[in-house]
Computed example of a mutant assay.
Amino acid sequence: MFTMNSTPNAATALPFIGRVLMATIFLLSALGKIVAPDANLAYIASMGLPAPVLGLVAAVMLELVGSVLLGLGYRTRLVAALLAAYAVATALIFHHALADQNQLFHFLKNLAMAGGLLQVVAFGAGAFSLDNRRAPVATAAV
C-alpha cells in the first residue's frame, strides 16, 4: 500500500507532477486560443463581454505565462492563486448554463482546477521547484 511515509522520493516528486499536470491544461488552452483566435473572439463577444480582443490577449498571456511559471514552480503560490481566480471567473462567465450537461461539466472542471490550485497556494510548490532552490551560502571573510 502506498503511503507518503514509506516512499519519500515519490512524495517529494508528487507536488512537481501535480503542478505540471495542472499547468498542462492552461498551456493547451492558451495554444488553442492562439491557433483559433477568431472562434475564441466570437465566443467572448457572444457572452456580451466588452473588448473581446483585449480579453483574448489577457487570457492568452495569463494562461501561457501562468502555465510555464506553475510548471517551473516560480512564484508558485501567487501564480496558483491567480490561475485559481481565473478558473472560477471563467466558470462563472462562460460555463454558467448549468442545465446544459457539457457546460455543467466544464463548470465543475474549472472548480476542480481551482481547488487543486488552492492546494498549491496552501502548501507551496514542493521540493522540485524554482521557489525551493537553495540560496548560496554566504561565507565569512577571513
Rank of each mutant, 00 (worst) to 15 (best):
N110P: 00
V65L: 15
P15L: 08
V20P: 01
A23L: 10
D100S: 11
L69G: 03
V68Q: 08
V20Y: 01
L28R: 10
G71V: 04
P15Y: 05
A97W: 00
D100F: 04
N9G: 08
R75F: 13
T7P: 00
G55H: 11
A36Y: 13
L49Q: 06
P8I: 11
T76M: 01
L78P: 03
A99E: 12
M113I: 15
G116A: 03
A84D: 09
A11P: 06
Q101P: 06
A97P: 00
L49N: 02
A13V: 12
V60A: 11
A23P: 02
L72P: 00
L118F: 15
L70S: 02
F26L: 06
S29R: 10
R133M: 11
V142S: 15
Q101R: 14
V142Q: 15
N9P: 00
A141Q: 15
R134I: 11
V65G: 07
R75I: 08
Q119K: 03
I34D: 11
A13G: 04
G18D: 02
A81I: 01
A87L: 04
V57E: 05
A141G: 15
Y86H: 14
A87N: 09
L92F: 13
F123S: 04
P52M: 11
G18W: 01
A30S: 15
I17E: 00
A97I: 08
N5P: 00
E63H: 14
L56P: 00
K33M: 13
L82R: 03
F107L: 07
D131E: 08
L14I: 11
N102R: 12
A45R: 08
A80G: 07
T3M: 04
L98C: 01
